[in-house]
Amino acid sequence: METSYNPTDAIQTIEQSIKEISALPTGAAYYFKLWGLILSSFYAIQFIAQQTDSATWNLIQNFSWLLFVIGGIASGVQNKRDQQTEQFEHFLDRVYFYAFISFAISVAVIQLYASLKNNQLNYTLFPLLLGMTIICTGGIAKYYLSVALGVICCALSVVNLFVAVEFVALIAAIAAFIGSFLTGYFMKNRNV
């Protein structure tokens, strides 16, 4: 035991280490921004296609699922880059990974259900699921702006219960932009 090393020094060592780690970004901001753009574009396309009888927009709507393929490829490429450059695995990486995998599964199941039953339930539940996920991850990361944006998403889900059916896709697009893109944007700016 180092005789000159006392408990006060030990506390300073621990505090310093925690500061070092807390100052490091998780790298999640990129994924939040990417999927915020993908999801808001997807729902915006559904909205525009529902509003117009244009054959072009109907065609775009039919192929809008390709956005998810693009998102998947972009995420994969970024993940590969992260693996090459990152020197540590943040404990929050695992939290974000599992939270958003379960979110994606839930959205996919609801999307499938809505398609089979031919209803708009997916647009109503999407902001709620996104809000819940962002509140949980923000709470665990102690990033309370994310929690606030998640609450706005949940509120938009309630709004979707009362607006005219033509606007539910637009509300979902706004929720994706606020809940995912803005969260990522602020995370990047604040080095979270």
Binding site: I14, S17, Q87, F88, E89, H90
Partner: peptide, 14 residues
């Protein structure tokens, strides 16, 4: 102590 403190806040580190 610094090593263990750092490792306690990450999954793993190089």
């Amino acid at each position: 102590l610094a090593i263990v403190s750092l490792l306690s806040h990450v999954e793993s580190a190089e």
